[in-house]
Nucleic acid binder design. Structure first.
Lengths: 342, 342
DNA sequence: TTGTACGCGTTATCAA
DNA sequence: TTGATAACGCGTACAA
């Protein structure tokens, strides 16, 4: 420690005014003389004063910190969301604490507790894929600390939710495959306990029925979408069948890329033998051979929306409509992996 | 707010002891009777007591928070590093504040200031690619707040650094291409003001000279490694040359994947016409056609190392050796994009 | 082994 | 428009 930390008392002493006035001046309090304010600010910058957040937090009982818990950071979608959140939240003077659940309920619970103990003013969560029990959020709800869920939400929790229309996206993806002439569309997806996967699945089924294609349960596979799981499902099951599917709708781009690799190795031609649609518009979908048709997720926009809602709430506005649901639009991006017709 | 927040005074009152004893008991102070401790802990859990970090921080003049500034979150490497850091840091009772510079010096400066004002106990930084001036870290150094640089470091700053041996990695990658019969090896990389790119470049040159291949400056291209830049360099320059290179060492996997796509579209065969080696072992390198040979970066290990060093320092140990440099090993992962010989 | 008393830096309250 | 004072919850020197 070289220079001692400057406090409002130091400023007050030098300016021959009270610490109260300094505090008010620093906060641009309307009742303070403009000249006094200027003197305060000038000296503050001169001496390198910085407000002590802990004293302030202690006094105000507020932390100006927002917690974020996500399953994983390593997707373009997640980092776009975070980027959006961070932008808004920073401008509003809040800090961000980020942690990952690595798709595990246990880690999610621990993280939630940590956030609680850090007294975040608000929490933003995208659920781990295997979270079944939501009691770890009860402490927040009890204390009226706002929790916003996004993307992977819990239907049963009363709280604001921000997500895309997964049903519509699933519908669009499936309909696109049908329009490309696919009749036997395989759907590989995650745990349907999670809304995102369930809704996409429902969209898939609706598109089939709207086009008079009967739903075939053997064409539905639910696993954890890891490389291993996708490989298992394809090699040990699908590729051993007598009748192979001619379309694949798989609900994330990395998995789509794995699937593509495996199918090509098995000698299938994409899109001629099997057309593929992924989900997320991650970088990876652009560089495979062929590039993968996918659903574009508005990550940044979603992040900004989440942050705005939360901050409005924290700043005391918009309190009434707090248990709302915001649904964002998605867009189908057609690439070579599914184009069989011009 | 439903339940009022419990403080050590509440506990003290109920147990008919002083707040001091409660405070000590909670901290497992040796001088406190075991039975008293037990009574304190039991009541604390019963009432849902949680320590107020702000009061504690205020009192201790320590925040138990560590700041991390990285260029971007969206690579497997970065999320592995963060994951490693988070693990160690959490176990040691610290919190993590993460922010992204998006490769911009200005944003990096702002983030640094925010971290400073949040009074982080330590800072972990990987520099933005265009950062030239490091004065924003001076405030930390002046106040003796430890700053650890990793991966993208600043040679000129006196402080602990954790990184891989980029020189060796560059050497290995290049040598591998030479062994596969390449003679005209194109090297596309980032801003060589940054150590990671400069060192890989030096490794590249050394490998060439050790194998008696003269260094050809026209085979060296430095850009920002974005999709656009890679495309420009290849389409508007390299592919128009009379003599095409027969090897490409490009220092990140996304760029390698872009390059691969572009070269294939231009009618070149990989690895027959041109063999490719990337860098990072990101997911993307596994799913391209062909899969890309790359350098595996020990992200997790790096993260854990960084965190351990920092925490040891903060806890008062290892103070002497604080300006050390830790270098981790890398490994070449050979895939189809470079294999021309068996 | 336990308790008293004070201070960390800020802000809310009340008074001037 | 400004000031005096107390309080936020905790940790610690000193005392017992």
């Amino acid at each position: 420690m070289q220079d001692k930390e400057i406090t409002i008392y130091d400023l007050a002493e030098r300016l021959n005014i009270s610490a109260t006035t300094v505090s008010r001046g620093l906060q641009d309090h309307p009742a303070i003389n403009k000249k006094t304010k200027k003197r305060i600010f000038d000296l503050a910058t001169e001496l390198g004063y910085r407000s002590n957040k802990f004293a302030s937090n202690l006094r105000k009982q507020k932390t100006n910190t927002i917690g974020v818990i996500v399953p994983r950071l390593n997707s373009l979608f997640m980092s776009s969301v975070l980027s959006g959140i961070e932008k808004i939240v920073n401008n509003a003077g809040y800090n961000l604490i980020i942690s990952q659940s690595f798709e595990q309920e246990a880690k999610e619970k621990t993280n939630t507790t940590t956030m609680f103990n850090s007294r975040v003013d608000g929490l933003i969560v995208s659920l781990a894929s295997d979270t079944q029990d939501f009691s770890h959020f009860d402490t927040f709800i009890k204390k009226n600390i706002p929790v916003i869920f996004f993307d992977r939400i819990a239907e049963s929790i009363q709280s604001t939710k921000v997500l895309i229309d997964n049903f519509k996206a699933g519908y669009k993806a499936t309909e696109h495959l049908i329009e490309q002439g696919c009749k036997e569309i395989l759907h590989i997806t995650g745990n349907t306990a999670r809304n995102v996967y369930m809704d996409r699945f429902e969209g898939y089924k609706k598109a089939l029925s709207d086009h008079n294609i009967p739903y075939d349960p053997t064409l539905f596979i639910s696993n954890d979408l890891t490389e291993q799981a996708v490989q298992d499902s394809l090699l040990n099951d699908v590729l051993k069948r007598d009748k192979l599917p001619d379309g694949l709708f798989i609900t994330n781009d990395s998995s789509a890329a794995f699937a593509l690799t495996i199918l090509k190795e098995a000698g299938l031609k994409v899109p001629e033998d099997i057309a593929i649609v992924g989900f997320n518009n991650d970088l990876i979908s652009k560089v495979t051979e062929p590039a993968i048709t996918t659903i574009n997720y508005p990550g940044n926009e979603m992040g900004e929306n989440i942050a705005r809602i939360l901050i409005n709430h924290l700043d005391g506005e918009g309190d009434l409509s707090f248990t709302s649901t915001v649904i964002l639009n998605t867009e189908l991006i057609v690439r070579a992996s599914s184009q069989r017709k011009k």
